[in-house]
């Protein structure tokens, strides 16, 4: 049986020492250095070149945390589909960059490691990602519905009607909430619902994980 290939995604700020513990202890065949647009990664690339490590730099702007996380997800998903194991080392860089990588790891379901004071690994994160926690029918409903949605339309339906069930599930997941649109009661997206919809819309051009 072929050995599973490994992808290591490391956040990088300014110091090479931030990525060394991960490089040494996390088995990998390819390294992605996640760096900020303003960062100078030349020290790291010179070091990696000397070591002969296969790597690439992925530039993100963590000020837009969700967009930056999505950029990482887009880059990593290809390898996930090929069956590679993916591990994120969030030790390097500033807080926002680590948050970006953490959000990406949680979204796709990848192991997270950090070496701030002592080595810490979160293995079970690799079992399932947030994208899989959003069932396809819910994702489709989020994408295709025009929000806010008139509450009267749902109230007219039998409780077992698929749309009524779908709306209840979305409410339970805190994706929608009752509101008033114009003068009529309606169901509108919550902050989480808007964030998930934004994520789905940006990912729609790319094949989604459940397809």
């Amino acid at each position: 049986m072929a050995r599973q290939q490994g992808l290591l995604v490391s956040t990088f700020g300014a110091n090479v020492s931030e990525i060394v513990p991960g490089l040494r202890s996390l088995p990998h065949d390819h390294l992605i250095l996640v760096v900020e647009t303003t960062a100078d990664e030349s020290a790291a690339t010179a070091f990696l070149d000397r070591l002969g490590v296969r790597y690439e730099a992925l530039t993100v702007d963590p000020q837009d945390l969700a967009a930056a996380a999505m950029r990482i997800v887009q880059r990593v998903q290809g390898q996930c589909w090929k069956g590679w194991s993916v591990c994120f080392d969030i030790t390097g860089g500033r807080k926002l960059l680590s948050d970006t990588a953490m959000l990406a790891a949680l979204a796709i379901g990848a192991e997270v490691c950090c070496y701030e004071t002592k080595a810490c690994r979160f293995p079970l994160l690799a079992a399932r990602g947030v994208e899989e926690a959003l069932p396809r029918e819910i994702a489709d409903a989020l994408l295709r519905t025009k929000w806010p949605f008139p509450l009267a339309t749902v109230q007219e339906l039998d409780g077992r009607h698929p749309l009524a069930i779908l709306m209840r599930r979305m409410r339970e997941m805190d994706l929608i909430e009752p509101t008033v649109a114009g003068k009529a009661p309606a169901l509108a997206l919550t902050g989480r619902g808007r964030a998930c919809l934004d994520w789905l819309q940006r990912m729609e051009g790319i094949s989604r994980s459940w397809e």
């Binding site: 994160l125 947030v130 989480r192 808007r194």
Partner: peptide
Amino acid sequence: QEIPLPLLRVDY
């Protein structure tokens, strides 16, 4: 500005 994040529950 507050920015909500697209996180859902995953029961590990």
